[in-house]
Nucleic acid binder design. Structure first.
Length: 579
RNA sequence: GGGGUUGUAGCUCAACUGGACAGAGCGACGGUUUCCUAAACCGUAGGUUCCGGGUUCGAUUCCCGGCAGCCCCA
């Protein structure tokens, strides 16, 4: 089990563990004893709740246990106060000097205190994965944004990350599409089709196939030709994929998302017969009504079809092949799949099969609630499909309106537009990332594009304010050359101390996000951090204070600025210097 | 029918994996700009954490049984 304890909490945990061990040598396992951030500043800075749980094991009242532990060792210098409260809480107040020096130390390293627990390990991130020849819409935001945040977080933890966009680039839809491309588009569209054209060709062809039997058969014939390697269909297919990738890349560039690989489903085609062979040899697959299936009696799951009666393969088969190939190519410690939660059963089955086949790689599914719009699943059929392009354009437009104010005149400058993008896109991303992935989201323009309160722009604004102050500071004649590394950060007032302690929790928040697969843990941390900064900012003059106070406060501000900038970066949200 | 998931303030969501008085944002009401960026800050009102049991010092959190929504699989 990985430890989640870092920095100050690790030091406190060691002291507490030693104290318990000294008080009750050999009486119990104290390795889980630790200090948590205090739930209320009135209790102190940290609290230890473990004495209460030990009452049974040690056969003593919890307060007596806590007392004995605290009396067992001399109090270390970094602990200013440690007292017992309520049923047996140990409330700990740490020394200001220690807190300040830890803050300065944490922000002086490039990692900002994030542990390199992934060093030497590889993780494959499978996210976004749209279907080729279809336009991206708001339903694609979640996998893309959540996946990319986890991608960035794992990299920050020292992992080698292979971000792989597992495109939906194979299957029956390509027969329909090829037929549609040939018959439903005009010459100009065929000459240089856009993804929108391809989508139209598919929709028209698919509609016709529902009523026209010969059309349907023609589509099937095109599919068979493609599967058999017919050069013409193969070239068309390749063309569709290239066009799709170019279009997706354009949108990913806007979002700051970058993939290392684009190995779509088709990449694993050649491997599928081998997978079937492995399943057979392992005694996992059996014939049933012409199809080949895997049963899960022990797991009490429904069966999974790995080869249909017509000889076609299912996702399960492709995914097994994919996991095997990734394991062979990259030897990852784990593969993380970010998809909507409708696929939970599929992943459970597929993971179970991989385990039975002896695949060593840890497979992790990060499921998220499906996005809906006006209470309905997003689909062309429902007519509620908002394209990602539209969303991003609207986000930019709304941010621009706020930047330029009520009575703006003339065309916006390029700088204004660029800023509007950062803010608008930041709002879109944060609206998603700030929710627990498990939460289903019903898309709402105002919520997706919120610019105030618990929103992306709130964080960006806090960042711009602190950057601005740091710039002003560095222009002063008697400024220290490096604000963050200069004076010890201020921790004397309650607002300062609360901010400093929160800064120290950054690595824990990053780890929590990685371990739980929830970037929302980091987003929530950053929002709370920024709130503490805003409170501090409001009540504590920095540049106008006398030099000693000023330098201490600016050091705290610089530390905050670095943490916030890094945190936003891990979420994939840009942090403009000025707003 | 079987399985998954969610249920917390008027609305949208948190609650660091069992801790002290359940917290934020929006909305409502009131206040703060000759002062480092008001996209901000401060305050007030707002709760049977779906219901009923259980586990224990302690439950929004874990277990059992219901109810409701969404989803998946025959």
């Amino acid at each position: 089990m990985e430890t989640n304890i870092q920095g100050c909490e690790a030091v406190l945990a060691k002291w507490l563990q030693d104290s318990f061990s000294a008080a009750f040598p050999g009486a119990a396992d104290f390795s889980a004893v630790r200090a948590l951030p205090a739930t209320d500043p009135r209790f102190g800075d940290f609290q230890c709740n473990d004495a209460m749980g030990m009452a049974k094991i040690l056969h003593r009242p919890p307060r007596a246990i806590a007392e004995a532990a605290l009396a067992a060792l001399p109090r270390p210098s970094f602990v200013e106060k440690a007292e017992i409260a309520g049923p047996g809480f140990i409330n700990i107040t740490v020394s200001p000097e220690w807190t300040a020096s830890l803050v300065r130390e944490a922000v002086s390293s490039p990692s900002l205190g994030i542990p390199a627990c992934g060093a030497g390990k590889t993780v494959v991130m499978d996210y976004s994965s749209p279907n080729a020849a279809k336009q991206m819409h708001i339903g694609h935001i979640r996998s893309t944004v959540i996946g990319n945040a986890l991608d960035r977080i794992f990299r920050a933890l020292g992992y080698r990350v292979i971000a792989d966009n597992h495109l939906g680039d194979w299957g029956t839809q390509f027969g329909i599409l090829i037929k549609g491309y040939r018959e439903c588009l005009d010459d100009a569209q065929r000459a240089s089709p856009t993804v929108a054209d391809l989508e139209k060709a598919y929709v028209d062809s698919s509609t016709r196939a529902k009523t026209d039997e010969s059309w349907k058969n023609a589509c099937r014939a095109e599919l068979v030709k493609l599967q058999q390697g017919d050069p013409e269909n193969r070239a068309l297919w390749k063309k569709f994929i290239d066009i799709s990738i170019a279009e997706f890349t354009r949108i990913y560039d806007l979002l700051g998302v970058k993939f290392d690989l684009w190995h779509g489903e088709s990449y694993y085609n050649d491997r599928l017969p081998k997978v079937i062979e492995e399943l057979r040899r392992a005694g996992l697959a059996e014939e049933s009504e012409g199809a080949l299936v895997v049963r899960f009696e022990e797991e009490k799951m429904p069966l999974a079809i790995v080869r249909k009666s017509d000889g076609g393969y299912n996702y399960t088969t492709t995914d097994i092949a994919c996991a095997e190939v990734r394991t062979e190519e990259f030897a990852p410690e784990r593969i993380v799949y970010v998809t909507d939660d409708r696929q939970q059963l599929h992943f459970k089955q597929f993971f179970a099969i991989c385990a039975k086949l002896g695949l060593k790689t840890k497979l992790v599914h990060v499921p998220f609630g499906l996005m809906s719009y006006q209470g309905k699943a997003i689909s062309t059929r429902e007519g509620n499909l908002i394209k990602l392009d539209e969303l991003l354009a609207e986000a930019e437009r709304r941010a621009l309106a706020v930047i330029r104010g009520e009575n703006a005149q003339g065309e916006p400058s390029p700088a204004e537009k660029a800023l509007a993008r950062k803010i608008g896109f930041g709002a879109v991303k944060y609206a998603d990332l700030s929710h627990d992935p498990a939460t289903a989201i019903d898309f709402n323009w105002d919520k997706a594009l919120a610019l105030e309160g618990n929103s992306g722009p709130y964080l960006q604004y806090a960042h711009a304010r602190v950057r601005s102050m740091l710039d002003r500071y560095s222009a002063l004649p008697d400024a220290l050359p490096d604000a963050a590394a200069g004076a010890l950060p201020a921790v004397s007032s309650p607002a300062e101390k609360a901010l400093a302690l929160r800064i120290l929790q950054f690595p824990a928040a990053v780890l929590r996000a990685a371990e739980t697969g929830k970037p929302s843990a980091l987003a929530e941390y950053l929002f709370g951090l920024s709130q503490l900064y805003s409170t501090f900012y409001q009540s504590s003059p920095v540049l106008k204070s006398e030099p000693a106070v000023r330098d201490a406060r600016i050091a705290l501000c610089a530390a905050f600025g670095r943490i916030l900038a890094k945190g936003l970066d891990l979420l994939g949200i840009e942090a403009p210097e000025r707003i």
